[in-house]
């Protein structure tokens, strides 16, 4: 097409495309994200009240949320909550768990090894890669500069 340049067309596209409903999305992300974190906090309190030391109760609460997240993913409920929660379900550890469970579940048709096993990390893999890499880089830095 000769008449409209790419840049001019990009402008037209921007005008014609409805923007995300942020006025609805951001408050919902705040509410649902806050609720999930509060639930996690409730588990921390529950475990510490049962005598679990704090440094174990914190990861235990995360593990509990991971389990619930995986369960709701299997029950076909998580994605319905995430539709409204957006970042509210993505950012807590629940997002990570769903990102691992969903492809594992979906790609089971390709077998337990190459399907479920390999594809489990197609969405969450980068989080592990860059999280660990950042940690190692940090460790090297503090070792070299004796900042520990």
């Amino acid at each position: 097409m000769e008449t409209v340049t790419n840049r001019a067309y990009a402008q037209m596209v921007k005008k014609a495309s409805p923007p995300s409903k942020s006025a609805r999305n951001i408050p919902l992300a705040f509410l649902i994200g806050g609720a999930i974190c509060t639930l996690g906090h409730a588990f921390i309190k529950l475990y510490t009240s049962r005598g679990v030391p704090e440094e174990t109760a914190f990861p235990a609460a995360s593990v509990t949320l991971v389990f619930l997240s995986a369960l709701f993913t299997g029950l076909n409920v998580y994605d319905k909550l995430a539709k409204y929660g957006g970042a509210g379900t993505l950012v807590p550890i629940t997002g990570f768990a769903n990102a691992i469970t969903a492809p594992a579940l979906e790609f089971k048709t390709e077998g337990y090894v190459m399907g479920l096993g390999a594809k489990m990390f197609i969405i969450a893999g980068p989080v592990i890669v860059y999280g660990i890499a950042a940690g190692v880089a940090y460790g090297i830095i503090i070792y070299l500069f004796r900042l520990y």
């Binding site: 806050g34 974190c37 990102a99 980068p126």
Partner: peptide, 29 residues
């Protein structure tokens, strides 16, 4: 406090989703 801080951290993520071209995987990273 838990609700507030958790909510704000998530809301920032929503701003990233709505206003940038960042995909969910990149936001998690």
């Amino acid at each position: 406090k838990a609700f507030l801080v958790g909510g704000v951290i998530c809301a920032i993520g929503q701003v990233l989703i709505d206003y940038t071209k960042l995909t969910p995987a990149r936001i998690l990273v």
